[in-house]
Design a protein around this nucleic acid. Structure first.
Length: 361
DNA sequence: CAAACGTGGAC
DNA sequence: TGTCCAAGTTT
C-alpha cells in the first residue's frame, strides 16, 4: 500500500522543517504571538519583531500590564494594528477574567479578540497537540492544487471544500506537525509562482500536477484598481514643539499618532483643503508655511499622495474635535509615539533636519 | 458578507 | 512602475 498524503508530508517535514524561534519552545504564549504576527505577514518580516517582542513582553502578564502605547510601538511597522490592540486586550482578558489560564480548545480560543478560525486551529494543534485543522493561505494553495479545487479562491464553495480537506487528512496525534508541514511546503515548494513540483513530497497525490494546471490553482478572482487620495498634513509648530494627534481606536492606523490633516476633496485646492480639515479637527485657523515634502504610500485599499506643510496657529488653542487625544511634543520625543509609515517618515525628517523648522535661525 | 485593514519585497 | 502577494479577523 502506498504511503498516505500525511505520511509523505511528515517524512518530508522531518528533513525540511524550517528552524523558527517560536518552534523552539511552542508554548501557548509563544505560538499565539507568532501566529498573530504571521497573519498576512512574511516570516522574514516577523523574525526581528518576534525577538524584540519576547524580550519586551516575555510572558502573558507582562503584555497585560503594558500600556497600549508600548504595545503599538513594539508593533510599529508590522501593519494591521488591530492585531496589536487585540493581543493587548486578549492578554488582559486572560489575566483578569480567565485566572491567567490561556484557553485550551478551539471554541474558547475563538472568544479572544483577534483569534479567528485559522489561528484557533493553529494554536490548538501546535501548542496543545489537539487534532484540529488550520487553513491558512499556504494550505489553501497546497490543497487547491493537490485536489484540483476549481471553485474561485475564497468563495463559499472553495472555503467549505478546503476546510473539509484540511480536516479529513489529519494524522491522529500529529496535527500540529502536519499543519506546520503544509505551511512550510506551501512556503518553500508549493509557491504561488513556479512551484517546484519535482521536489514536492505530494506530487504523487497532486491532481493539478497530474493535469499540468498547478500554475492556475488556486483560481484567483479579479482585483479592482485602487482609488488614489490626495491628503494634506499640517506640522503645526509653536515654541519649539509640534502638535500631534492620536487617531481613533477603530479604523485605519487606530491608536497611532499622526500630524493632523486629511483628505483633499476632488478639485479642491490643497492648502484650502488642509485649512478646512484642520478647522474640522482642531477648531482653529492655521497659516500655511513652507511645504515639507510629498509622500507617496500604498495602503491595502487605496493609494495616497500626502502633502505636508509647516504651519502656524492663529493664536487660539486647538480643541480636540476628532482624535483620541492631542499632544505638543519636542521634536526628539516624536520617537516615543507609535506612528504609521508616512508620519514616521515626516517625524524622522524633522528629527534629521530640525533647522528647517526655524529657517531664520 | 463584501469591504476594511499595513507594509515590504519580488517581478 | 504597477501589480501581486504574505501563517486572517472583524464588522
Amino acid at each position: 500500500m502506498s504511503p498516505s498524503l500525511a505520511e509523505n508530508l511528515l517524512d518530508w517535514y522531518q528533513d525540511h522543517a524550517r528552524s523558527l524561534p517560536w518552534r523552539d519552545n511552542p508554548d501557548p504564549y509563544n505560538v499565539w504571538i507568532a501566529e498573530i504576527m504571521l497573519q498576512q505577514t512574511r516570516v522574514e518580516t516577523v523574525l526581528p519583531y518576534y525577538d524584540r517582542w519576547m524580550t519586551q513582553f516575555p510572558a502573558l502578564d507582562s503584555l497585560a500590564q503594558a500600556t497600549q502605547q508600548e504595545v503599538l510601538s513594539a508593533w510599529e511597522g508590522l501593519g494591521y494594528y488591530s492585531r496589536a490592540r487585540n493581543l493587548h486586550r486578549a492578554a488582559q482578558i486572560v489575566m483578569d477574567e480567565l485566572d491567567g489560564k490561556f484557553p485550551q480548545d478551539v471554541k474558547s480560543l475563538r472568544r479572544l479578540p483577534g483569534i479567528g478560525r485559522y489561528t484557533a486551529g493553529a494554536i490548538a494543534s501546535i501548542a496543545f497537540g489537539l487534532d484540529e485543522p488550520a487553513l491558512d493561505g499556504n494550505i489553501r494553495r497546497v490543497f487547491s492544487r493537490v485536489f484540483d479545487v476549481r471553485h474561485l479562491a475564497r468563495s463559499k464553495e472553495s472555503e467549505a471544500q478546503l476546510w473539509q480537506l484540511a480536516a479529513s487528512h489529519l494524522p491522529a496525534g500529529r496535527a500540529g506537525e502536519y499543519n506546520q508541514a503544509l505551511m512550510d511546503l506551501g512556503s518553500l515548494i508549493c509557491t504561488p509562482r513556479e512551484p517546484d513540483c519535482s521536489a514536492c513530497p505530494l506530487n504523487k497525490h497532486c491532481q493539478a500536477y497530474f493535469l499540468g494546471v498547478q500554475a492556475e490553482r488556486p483560481l484567483r478572482p479579479e482585483r479592482k484598481s485602487l482609488p488614489h487620495h490626495i491628503v494634506g498634513s499640517a506640522i503645526i509648530e509653536r515654541a519649539g514643539q509640534v502638535l500631534i494627534a492620536q487617531r481613533p481606536q477603530d479604523g485605519l492606523l487606530g491608536g497611532l499618532w499622526e500630524f493632523p490633516g486629511g483628505k483633499i476633496e476632488p478639485g479642491e485646492d490643497i492648502a484650502a483643503g488642509l485649512k478646512r480639515e484642520i478647522c474640522e479637527e482642531l477648531g482653529v485657523e492655521i497659516e500655511i508655511g513652507p511645504a515639507y515634502g510629498v509622500y507617496q504610500h500604498a495602503y491595502t485599499h487605496f493609494r495616497v499622495t500626502l502633502h505636508a506643510f509647516l504651519c502656524q496657529l492663529d493664536g487660539r488653542q486647538p480643541q480636540n474635535l476628532y482624535h483620541t487625544s492631542l499632544a505638543w511634543t519636542e521634536i526628539p520625543s516624536l520617537v516615543d509615539y507609535p506612528m504609521g509609515k508616512i508620519d514616521r517618515q515626516i517625524s524622522n525628517a524633522l528629527i534629521d533636519l530640525p533647522r528647517s523648522l526655524a529657517p531664520e535661525i
